[in-house]
Structure formats: C-alpha cells, structure tokens
Write a protein that binds this DNA or RNA. Structure first.
Lengths: 256, 256
DNA sequence: TTCCTTGTCGTACACTGTACGACTAGCCCT
DNA sequence: AGGGCTAGTCGTACAGTGTACGACAAGGAA
C-alpha cells in the first residue's frame, strides 16, 4: 500500500515542514500536551512498530489519547502527516553517516550504506510515494546536502552531481524495497523466503518447458541455489553498488 | 497504494498461473462466458485505464456484468488476481524487444528500454509488490529468459548473469516509478510538475539557510532549472543507464 | 423425476479518511 | 466580575474496501 503525499498547496506544506506556524494549544489540547512534533513522533513510532498499514488516523489518535478528528487541528490531512514523517525520519541521516573518507568513492559508498540503514530503521519510508515531489523540509535537505558533498570536488558539474546522487539513492531505495517486501510477505503468509522457494522450486520444475526457457533452465537453479531464494536483496545491494560506483568512476576519472 | 501478492499456497498459485485447472463453467457462468483469462484481461484493461486504485472487486465484477462474489469462483482472492495480471502483462515483453544486436551492451540496453515501455503501458505494475516472490508464470519467465539471453556469452557465470539482469531491471523499475508517481501527483492535485516547482522554489528560497546547506544552495537551483522540476525521471533514466552499463562493462571486459 | 454438484450472488462485518457541526474551555475586553 | 468570542475537541455520518457465509438455482446423472 503506497500512500500519496503533498495534496494541499506547497506553501502550506512548507510552512508546516519548517514549523513556521505552530498551533499553540490553549483549549483542552494543552492537557494532552499535543503538538505537531508529538503527533509526528508518535506516528513514526507506530509505523516503525507495526507498519504503515497500522497507521490509521483513528489508531494514531488512540495512541495519543485523543479523538480522531483532533489530529486535524495539527495536520491538514494524512498526506501532510506522511510528508512530515518522511522529512523527520530522513533527518536522522547525519547520525548514520560518517564522512571521514577523503576519496569520493568511499564517501559515496558510505552515503549508500547510511541510506540503506535508514530504510532498515524505517521501512515504511519505501511505501510513501515521495519521488516526484519530495517534502522539501530540513530533513530531506540535510540528506541531500550530505549526499551532494560526497560527490563534490570530483570535477563533475552541478547537474551531474545531482544526477549521481539521485542514481545512488534510487538504487538503494530499490534494493531496500526488496528486503521490506520479503519481510512483509513473511509476516503476511507465515512462510519464510527459503520455505517458499523450497515449496515452489520442485513444482516449477515439473510445470515448465526447458526448451522454451533454455537460459533460465541453466541459470535459474544455480542462482536460486546460491541465494536460497528467487531473490536476495542484500546480495543484490552489494553487487549493484560495486557496478554503480564503477560506472560513476568511468564518468569521473575516465576509467574504473 | 502498493498491494501484496501471493497470499495462498504456492502450488495453487502456480497451477493458476500455468492454467493447469480451469473451472469449466456449467451453470449460469456459461451465459456470461466467464473464464480466468477474461477476468484477468478485463482487470488489466481497467487498471490500464483508471489505475490500480479503481480496481476493486465490485467494480471489476460490474465491468464483467456479474456479481462481485462471482469473481471468487475464478480467482481465490485479489492477491492471486494481481499475480495473474502481472504475469500476463510481463508476457508482452517479447513484442517490445528486438534482440537483433550482436553486442551484449546493445542487447542489455534494448532490454532496459523494452522494460521501460512495459511500465509505461502498465503503470500499475509498479504498484504491486512482486519483488521477493514473483509470480513464476509463463510471462515472468519469458521476460527473465530474454533478459538472461542478453547477458549470455559474456563470460559471466550464472550467478553474475542473474545479478546483472536483476540490477538493470531494478533500475528501470525505480526510475519508471518516478514517472508514474509524477503522473499520479498531477492527476491527484491538478498541478503540473513545473507549476509545482515554480510555486515551491521561491518559497523555499526564503525559508532555508544557505549556510546550513551550502552545496544544495549551489547545486539545487542549477539542477532544478535544468529539468524544470525537482526531479526528471526520464533524464535520470538516460543518465543512469549509461553509468550502469559502464559499470557492467568493467565487470565483463575489465574496462569500459 | 429426483438428487447432487457447482456456479452465482445478496447480505453483513470491520475497517478506511475526513466533512460537518455541536460543544466547551480559556482569553480578552469592558 | 461578567459577557462574548475564538479556537481546540470530537461524535456522527458517508461512501468506499475485501471477502466469509449461506441461500439459491441450473445442469448433469441416476
């Protein structure tokens, strides 16, 4: 279930992201000590613990000890809440990234691994469709800043710097999604990846025609055996990262 | 809204995917001429035209002129229906791919572009989470076969062949998702990407601190201007594809 | 003709986001 | 001190979701 963000007008979203206006509670809200931050933090905790599927407005309100509609005092709609959650979670990036390395390749690899662990900590990040119009709050910009710094000083122009960071970031998100989907599938079905593959492989063997799929017949079992599944996202991450950095090296240095 | 697939047991799913058992209708179903294929084809047509969000069991049944629960005669649940849709849509791959090229790099690029146009034709493919446990039907295997053939004869071993195809495929899916999300955002908000960027950029200028984000301050506006948006997935595709193929070339030939 | 199998489908349940409007607690002004 | 207004709270309602259950009916077999 991917959720869409940023419904309302950009100005409203931005002023929320940067906390330009805070609805200072005067009424009974003061009792509960509610605030945008508390709503967002609780929502993140809920999504971390039980997934984005468990994050309904009613449930979040119950966790906060208020009525469902009270949330709409602090947040215009669920879409904006998700924006705020994304920005807040991505803001943790600096604590996961140590930019000690002095070579761009080491820096970029560190960025990729820090990003990877962000998605491990907050898997629901991959289920909010922030692609086209990211919530341009402090958290997102901080991550973007550090990502760009990693490719700074390589001689690449500004457009290429942006493109390289975007490429790495998209790759990490894609492979991380693999992990998340596998975990979700395990929880939904109660069957582990290995069990599923062991149940599927023999049936598949009988059903499909080696003459129609000669290359799959040769490659599939070997690959499947190597990763004990149809797909191992962690291995895909390690493999792909090297290819990607090699490709960027060609652009930067003219050779890997 | 990403939907999960493959709830039931693998054996049941596989026999459906390969059409091992067809519920030959004897009762009133014969009047409507219903079949698994007709259900799947109609579901694909609906998802193509109005998106995965419009694909509810009630709506699909209405399009077929039957009651909602009738669908469950042909398909165990919505998850399995999605599996069947994915496999059927991916089966169109050969008609989009001409493997004339005799160099692996040209073949792999053709695979990437064919895959890209699949996601253009069926954007909803990107919203079903098939990652970990793909529906291993004839359509998926056909695409996998042709993808593997593209990297065959390069001297790579079986595990690496699988890894390269997976890497390319993941990259295409990731960037294609960018397009889909942008279109979805435009339809949901009524604001085009360019309009959104033009509304956001000036506000953002005032709100954020150049000293805190020096590299973003330098790179962001140049990149934003170059693509008239925060992100241009088509340019990201062209840029990333070259990097990726360069990286694979290093693996295959030892140099780009 | 009677029975049984098998496809059809109306109803019901628990759930979603949020529009609307009623309620009330606290602040300001007189 | 008292009245009025502002602004946060939240109960109810609506249109939708996937699908379990069980009633129904039509065709083939005896």
């Amino acid at each position: 279930m991917t959720e869409i963000t940023g419904t309302g007008d950009p100005a409203r979203s931005l002023s929320l992201l940067w906390r330009l206006v805070e609805p200072s509670p005067r009424g009974r809200g003061a009792e509960a000590g509610l605030s945008v931050d508390r709503v967002v933090d609780t929502a993140i905790a809920l999504a971390d613990a039980e997934g984005l599927g468990a994050l309904s407005m009613r449930r979040l309100a119950a966790d906060l000890g208020v009525g469902a509609m009270t949330l709409y005092t602090y947040v215009p709609a669920k879409a904006e809440l998700l924006d705020l959650m994304v920005d807040s979670a991505l803001g943790e990036f600096p604590s996961l990234y140590s930019p000690v390395a002095d070579h761009w390749r080491a820096r970029l690899e560190a960025v990729a691994r820090a990003s990877w662990s962000q998605y491990e900590r907050h898997p629901w990040l991959l289920h909010v469709a922030a692609s086209g119009r990211p919530p341009l709050g402090p958290g997102v910009l901080t991550k973007y800043e550090l990502g760009l710094q990693a490719v700074d000083g390589t001689g690449l122009d500004e457009v290429a710097m942006d493109a390289v960071f975007t490429l790495i970031e998209g790759f990490v998100a894609g492979t991380a999604r693999g992990v998340v989907d596998q975990v979700a599938a395990e929880e939904a079905t109660g069957i582990t990846e290995t069990e599923w593959w062991e149940a599927t492989a023999p049936i598949l063997d009988r059903v499909f025609d080696p003459e129609r799929f000669p290359t799959v017949t040769r490659v599939g079992p070997v690959a499947g055996e190597a990763q004990q599944a149809a797909y191992d996202p962690r291995k895909a991450f390690e493999f792909g990262l090297v290819r990607l950095l090699d490709g960027v090296a060609v652009l930067v240095d003219g050779s890997p």
